[in-house]
């Protein structure tokens, strides 16, 4: 009973944190002045948002396989974020965005 309550509480807390960072990342995307700083917001804040979201969902997982799957999703998204950020930044640089 208490364990269940605790688990749900942790889920709510971590997914809320995740949503906060997703919102902050989107806000940065809208408010930051140039391509490169917008990329900062997208990669870093969204990566953290997804991490917290996955962590929150892990507390609801029925078994280890689901925990591993969530961790895998986060790891792959992380890999993609780091790579894509570099590619977009380089493409923008080559197109002459210089700020």
């Amino acid at each position: 009973m208490i364990a269940e309550f605790l688990r749900d509480g942790l889920s709510v807390a971590f997914t809320a944190l995740g949503l906060f960072f997703f919102a902050a990342g989107s806000l940065g995307l809208l408010r930051f002045p140039d391509v490169f700083s917008r990329l900062h917001a997208l990669t870093k804040a969204d990566n953290l948002g997804l991490g917290f979201l996955a962590l929150g969902l892990m507390f609801q997982a029925p078994g280890w396989a689901v925990v591993a799957k969530l961790a895998l999703i986060w790891a792959l998204a992380l890999l993609a974020a780091g790579t894509v950020a570099q590619l977009v930044a380089r493409a923008a640089l080559m197109k002459g965005e210089r700020r």
């Binding site: 940065g28 917001a41 953290l48």
Partner: peptide, 9 residues
């Protein structure tokens, strides 16, 4: 990194 950029945003 996430906290820093969220704070700036």
């Amino acid at each position: 990194g996430g906290i820093d950029v969220a704070r700036r945003a």
